[in-house]
């Protein structure tokens, strides 16, 4: 443990040096005034682990020095032990208000002094562990963020969302269906118009969380339809509704937007994330639609939603007309 002891009496330095060495602490620097201590603190590359400060010194006293260490020198948690004579104990309140952690009295009780130093050492070690853990944690978080970072146009697997598949799995699902099975199936694409800004603004984890929340919001708005969903990149989501769907899609988008808004999402700086959905396109499979046709439509919808997402926000239904999908066979079953 690296210690700085400050006392205007050099004879005290001698006593402290011996007591500290006897307790196993040899790395001790001495200053005879607050100004000298400030210079030492400013000059060292590795900070001191603990401080011993005499309260009553000519010039700035130990309390002023303690306050300076806490507020200006960045010594937030290092132990600061005040040295005071028995008759000056009234100064201790001010010392603790200035950030002192302990005190010893002069004349020194050698055993007590050694005990206090060892306590300070334990505190210093605990502080160092906390500091090191925090550094490691920050590095791990940064590494994790790097690992989780995805390109704006890349699709993101939403493993934690029920009903969410990878795009390829959604295609395979469509390919497995026969013509008759696909009849009545609806394909709908949604997009988040502000995704480019959000991708740039959010950390990787927050971006993934946003996509997962967005997917859940869409699926919640489509509740009861048996919808399957995939993220197609760039804030575009494609859904497959095997039982068809008969509803106003603008209302579905508005409902999904409301669900997402109700989550109260905020970014790393505490600012709210506003991400209203827009319907990018929809298709209703007829009796003659094959699985390959459906995959082609899915690709087209995905591409359109991605391109539109990367453009400035603009409503799809510019004339305000409602887009309604009447089903050939309501709730057709495969």
């Amino acid at each position: 443990m690296k210690i700085l002891a400050v006392d205007d009496d050099v004879l005290i330095h001698g006593v402290l040096r011996t007591v500290l060495a006897g307790a196993g602490y040899d790395d001790v620097s001495f200053a005879a005034s607050a100004n000298e201590a400030r210079m030492l603190v400013g000059a060292v590359s590795a900070p001191y682990d603990a401080y011993l400060l005499d309260i009553q010194m000519p010039g700035d006293d130990g309390i002023a020095l303690c306050r300076w260490l806490r507020k200006e020198a960045g010594c937030r948690a290092e132990p600061i032990i005040m040295i005071t004579s028995m008759s000056a104990k009234t100064f201790l309140d001010g010392a603790f208000q200035a950030g002192a952690t302990d005190y010893v009295t002069k004349p020194f009780d050698v055993t007590e002094l050694a005990t206090r130093i060892r306590q300070a050492d334990r505190q210093s070690q605990a502080n160092r562990r906390i500091r090191d853990d925090a550094i490691r944690l920050r590095a791990l978080k940064a590494a994790l963020e790097d690992m989780r970072r995805v390109d704006l146009t890349a699709s993101v697997a939403l493993d934690d969302v029920d009903g969410a598949l990878e795009p390829l799995a959604l295609e395979n699902y469509l390919l497995r269906l026969g013509r008759g099975d696909l009849a009545g199936t609806s394909l709908i694409a949604f997009r988040l118009p502000g995704i480019t800004r959000l991708h740039a603004r959010l950390a990787a984890t927050a971006y993934r969380d946003l996509l997962a929340d967005a997917a859940e919001s869409i699926l919640a708005a489509l509740q009861g339809s048996g919808a399957l969903l995939a993220h197609a990149g760039a804030g575009a989501f494609v859904t497959v509704l095997p039982r068809g769907f008969e509803a106003d899609l603008d209302e579905v988008a508005a409902l999904a937007s409301q669900v997402l808004d109700d989550l109260g999402l905020i970014d790393d700086t505490g600012l709210p994330i506003a991400a209203p959905f827009v319907v990018a396109g929809a298709h209703h499979c007829g009796m003659m639609t094959s699985g390959r046709d459906a995959v082609g439509v899915l690709h087209a919808l995905s591409a359109r939603a991605r391109v539109d997402s990367l453009e400035p926000a603009e409503p799809v239904h510019q004339d305000g007309a409602r887009q309604r999908f009447g089903l050939v066979r309501p709730f057709a079953r495969r």
């Binding site: 009496d9 005290i12 009553q56 040295i83 004579s85 028995m86 008759s87 000056a88 002069k106 004349p107």
Partner: peptide
């Protein structure tokens, strides 16, 4: 100032009576 320094040092160096009297004077 003198009694303060005396009070701090005397007792530590074994001059207990001197340290106590310096404390009282301070």
């Amino acid at each position: 100032f003198a009694t303060h320094r005396m009070a701090g040092l005397a007792g530590t160096l074994g001059f207990r009576a001197l340290g106590r009297l310096a404390q009282q004077a301070e």
